[in-house]
Structure formats: structure tokens, C-alpha cells
Design a protein around this nucleic acid. Sequence first.
DNA 1: AAATTATTCAACCGATCGGTTGACAATAAA
DNA 2: TTTATTGTCAACCGATCGGTTGAATAATTT
Lengths: 141, 141
Amino acid sequence: MVELQTHPIDTVFHALSDGTRRRMLRELAQGERTVSQLAEPHDMSLAAASKHIKVLEGAGLIRREIHGRTHLCRLEPGPLATAHEWLTFYERFWTSRLDILERLLREEDAQTSAQDEIRKSPLKSPAPQKSETEPETGEDQ
Amino acid sequence: MVELQTHPIDTVFHALSDGTRRRMLRELAQGERTVSQLAEPHDMSLAAASKHIKVLEGAGLIRREIHGRTHLCRLEPGPLATAHEWLTFYERFWTSRLDILERLLREEDAQTSAQDEIRKSPLKSPAPQKSETEPETGEDQ
DNA sequence: AAATTATTCAACCGATCGGTTGACAATAAA
DNA sequence: TTTATTGTCAACCGATCGGTTGAATAATTT
């Protein structure tokens, strides 16, 4: 048993990296659900869904209460807050006006310097550079 | 080639689920870095680090500019903003006073109703229930 | 031209992932 | 007491993950 340290946030981000599990969280945002209620919309065996739920539970994203033969799950927002906080560290990179200006300058620089030698100067961008300043969709699930 | 749809945010959360990659992002928050600069602090082969960098690139979290034989990487905050936004949906669950009250009531209810029958009422919590209201560490990496 | 440096690629490895199936345990309903 | 219902468990499967090594590529230095 080696058990090399796995940071808790590893398991949170891992849990969130699966669409099925994200949909389950969305469902739980509406209120408590049993295991079979959570499983129902997903095209997979109950056992598979049960595993997903266990992953969410392992990440601390949900908690379950056992009432007789049914297990009631509810959202546990703590780890989501932690992940949110973690990402907030990078907020300045997508909000700061300075940074936007910086990026624009870099792109402009890339265009004008497309033909000159790239020898010692460590900040040129000769790559194809498709205009991608807008953040991607976000969407459901 | 089946290629079942993988949501972009899947790859973002997956990229973030690894400590090595999160440390690389932190490093890139300080400024641009070459592949070997990013690899250096990590106890693994350059090839392994290179793979991590490719994962980050695949998730759109970084972008690289090739200058001769060196690859300069820089942070691309868009996907981080997307993930942050995604998590923001759940913000009300960890901020709302109403929700805190709700949770407190639920815990109190659990204590007082520990001995009465749990038959038809769908909102009882008889589980051991260790007090966990505080969000976990957050920390570095 | 030869040697060094920066990086990727391809093949391989064991571990983990996401799914299946079939059996099982426990509760609830007939 | 029998029968359903709810959910887990264990074993298995192919795919992906995170790492290795050795070779290849490409640019720079000597």
C-alpha cells in the first residue's frame, strides 16, 4: 500500500471532468434525489450510475442519507466553493484590462513581425494565430 | 473512428485534475516559460512533462509559440474563466444565508428525530453527521 | 561538419476509468 | 412467507492515463 499523496482538489476536478456526473450535480441543485432518480436520465446500468455517485461522494460533492432501502443524495457545495476559489486566483488574467491590451499588442506584434528574423528577441509570435479572445460556450451539463 | 462527443469542459476539468499540470499553470501565471523551464521543477522525464503540456494545450489552457528549437508557453485564461463561470452556477449553495439556515435545521432535525420512526417523511437525516460546514484547505499547486 | 541543445514521437508498462453482467443483501409490499 | 424493489459488490473488459525509455527531428554552437 503506497498511497502517494493525492490532493483533495484532484478528486474534485476529476469528478467534475465527466458529463454524467456534472448532470447529476445539476439535478441535485434542484433538490435531493435517490440513486435511481439520479440514474434514470442516463443511458447506463444502475451499477454504473451508482459508481458515478460514489465518485461524487468520494470528492465530497454530495452526501447521502440512507432511509431504509433508498439512498437520498444531496449536494454538498464545499468542494465546489474550493474549486471556484482556486480558479479565482487566475481571475485577473481574464478580467484585467491591462492584460487584454497586452494580448492585443502581442497579436499586433505577431502580424508586423511576421517577416523579420526571429533570432534573439524572446517575445515574438509568428504562429498562424486565429483570433480567439472570446471564452468558449460554457453550456449545460 | 467513433469519436463520441466530449464536451470541451470535460478536457478542461480533466487537465486541472492533475497537480503537476496545476503547478505548471501557476508557473505560467508568473510569465511565459519554455517547455524545459516548465519541466524542470517536476521529478519526471522531459517527455512526461511534454505530455502534460500537450494536455494543457489540448484543453486550450495554454498556447505555445515556437521560436527556433524552443517552445514558449503562455497562459490562456479563457477556459479557466469558463470553468469558473460553470462553478458560479452553484455559488448560491455556499453563500446563501437561507441555505445555511436550511442545513442547520436539517442537522437539528436529525438529532431530535434520531429515535422516531423514519417511515414516509422524505427529509430526515439519521446519519452520524460529522460537523462539516467549513470548506477544505484550497492550498497551493 | 560535428556536437550540443530543445523538444517530440513511438512503443511499452501498470494503474485507473467507465462501462457491463450476474450475484447478493436488505427493505418493503403482497 | 413470498415477491418486488433499491442499491451495492465483484469480476471482467477495452480505453485512457501517467509514466518510462530510446530514437528521431530540428535548430544552434563549436
